[in-house]
Structure formats: C-alpha cells, structure tokens
C-alpha cells in the first residue's frame, strides 16, 4: 500500500506546495502504515528530487522524457496511473491548482477511484475514507465519504503544516509506457511572466479595489508590495476597467488565493470577492466606509483614505524592519 504524490516542478525546482503535499501524504501514510511515493515528471536534478525526502517521501519515482516537457493531460494521466498501479497506491494526491485540477479527474477515472478536490484536512477516517473539502467557493465545508477502495485528492493550498523528517528517500527511474496517440494536443508557445512574485505563491498579497481611484494611483500600493516582497492583486472591476492586468484579479471568477496576509485596500468586500480571498490567514482592510462589508471578513481594519494611509504604512513597516 502507498500514498502517491504528484509533485510538480517549475523549471526544475519544487515549491512549498510540493513539500506541503508530501507532509500531508506522510500523515495519511503514518495513519495507515503505508509508504509515501513522490512522482516527478520532467527534468529535475537528483539533488532537488532528494529534498522531497526531507518532508517524508520514502521513495521518489522520476520519469524523464522529452515529450513530457509540457503538460499534456492525457499523457500525464497515463503515466501517473501506471505509477499508482505499480506502487499499489490507495491514494493519489495532487495540489488543488491548475495542474492538479487538469489531472486528478482523469486519473480518478482510470483508477476507478472516488475523487475529492480542495481538501483542507487530514482524512477524519480511513475506513470508510472520509475527508473535509471546501464547497460553495470558500463559504462552507463538506465532509465527503469515498465509496470506492481508492481515492484521488487535491489539497487546497496552505492547509497543512510542513514538517521536516529524517531523509531516507531513494530515487528510482520509472520507465512508464508513453504512447504517441496521447499527444493530440501540442504546446506551440509558452509566455511566462518573469520578475514578479506570483500571486498563487505569495505569502503576502497587497490588493487594491475601486477605492484606489484610478490606474495612475497604484504607485503607493506597489511600494508597499515591494517593501513586503508581496504579490499584487485587485478586485474584478479594477481588472475589467483595465486599471490592472487580468492575472491580478482575485475572487470567485478570478484567482483563489490563501496567503498568510492579505491587504484589502479600497475594496468593499463583496461576497464574490471574499470567495477568492477568505482563506487568507489574516486580512487587513483599509476603507473610508466604516460599514463596508470587508470589515466583517477582516482581522484588522483602519477606517480611512488609502492614499493617506499607504505611504505611512510602508514607512512604518520599513522602520520596524530596520529596527
């Protein structure tokens, strides 16, 4: 028996997300007395692969093949399924991000496994298998029971503590069968945003709404983000009106994020906005309207004008860091 974890790499490196997945898998495996297998597809140096052992992987399977350099859902699902079968895995774990959402359903069908996505806790029971997930776009949770022997899960980001353990992991090259007919989609072009903190990775996010008043007024917000090493986000009307690029839009119809700290600056706190950010550990709101709904979701609030407060806030943070 084993728990198999699909670990995604970005240009040959793993992110916190992958270590979080392994930590989660380790806890399930300890409960069930099984092993944690990490599966890496693509080119990653052995030193980097070996890091997965620090979080509890017992074995690391690596699959390297030119054709798998970009994500092709059908081919990846086939490789992951073969690995899960070879390792007699009862649980296959993905991250609840774009890649996980693309692959988990395909793998679940192949393994005849019950699929639960956006899980936030260690299963409350393994037999029957029961686990908690997010529903209604962050507004509630559901406990889901899986009726099949196997299960496929996607883990919501920032849900478990990352724990380091002793590293006894071995690396094994896995020679999966890769079929040409699985490559009916082809990646023609890749456009990467470079030199910015990615919204979905950021520990701190600084976000502006219509209360920022105009696209030319973002400099103080950018200064705060730069001081904090934070990513920048915005509400939907801000991106709709072209004040900020679309990739910064957070909420029900934008990106769903869960940083440790979220600054909502001139954002009213509409329910669709909160759907994308309410999983943040802490929310700070600045708004001129003391009755703005954002204060119901926030942990800390200031009633006031963002443009007066932002430079002071950046200044005070700098002072604190320098002290």
């Amino acid at each position: 028996m084993s728990v198999i974890v699909f670990v995604e790499n970005w240009d040959g490196k793993f992110k916190k997300l992958s270590f979080e997945l392994i930590s989660y898998a380790r806890q399930i495996a300890d409960k069930s007395g099984s092993r944690v297998i990490a599966l890496s597809i693509g080119t990653v140096e052995d030193d980097e692969l070996h890091k997965l052992g620090n979080y509890g992987a017992d074995k690391i399977l690596k699959v390297e093949d030119e054709r798998l350099n970009s994500l092709i859902n059908k081919a990846y699902a086939s490789v992951i399924t073969q690995a899960a079968e070879k390792e007699s895995s009862d649980t296959v774990l993905f991250s609840h991000n774009a890649t996980g959402k693309a692959l988990a359903p395909r793998v679940a069908v192949r393994l005849k496994a019950g699929a639960v996505t956006g899980v936030t806790e260690i299963p409350s029971s393994l037999d029957p298998f029961e686990v908690k997930k997010k529903v209604f776009t962050n507004k509630a949770f559901a406990n889901v029971r899986v009726r099949s022997v196997k299960n496929v899960l996607t883990l919501f980001q920032n849900s478990v503590e990352i724990k380091e353990t002793e590293n006894n992991a071995e690396i094994e090259a896995f020679d999966a069968e890769i079929r040409d007919q699985d490559f009916k989609t082809r990646v023609l072009e890749v456009n990467k945003i470079t030199g910015k903190v990615l919204l979905t990775d950021a520990e701190i996010v600084v976000s502006g709404g219509r209360g920022m008043k105009g696209p030319e007024k973002w400099q103080p917000l950018e200064d705060l983000a730069a001081e904090l090493g934070a990513a920048i986000a915005c509400s939907r009307p801000v991106s709709d009106e072209g004040w900020r690029p679309h990739e910064e839009h957070v909420g029900q119809t934008g990106k769903i994020i869960a940083p440790n700290l979220y600054f909502a600056l001139g954002i009213s706190g509409a329910i669709q906005h909160l759907g994308g950010v309410s999983s943040s550990k802490y929310i700070v709101a600045v708004n001129t309207d003391k009755d703005a709904p954002i204060f119901e979701a926030a942990d800390y609030g200031i009633v006031g004008d963002v443009h007066k407060i932002l430079p002071e806030l950046t200044g005070e943070i700098k002072k604190m860091k320098d002290a």
Partner: peptide, 27 residues
Amino acid sequence: LTEFVRFELPPPKAACKMVDEENIREL
C-alpha cells in the same frame, strides 16, 4: 463514488480589530 455526509459553515470570525488611522504603527 462519493457522498456528502455532512456540511459545516466556517467558525464565526472574531470581530475585526480596528486601529485608528493616526496610529499606523500599532497596526
């Protein structure tokens, strides 16, 4: 293959701590 057995609402959020706009240092 799956079944929703029980739903939960998130625990109520503690009240927002308000900080005076003249006291950013406190925040």
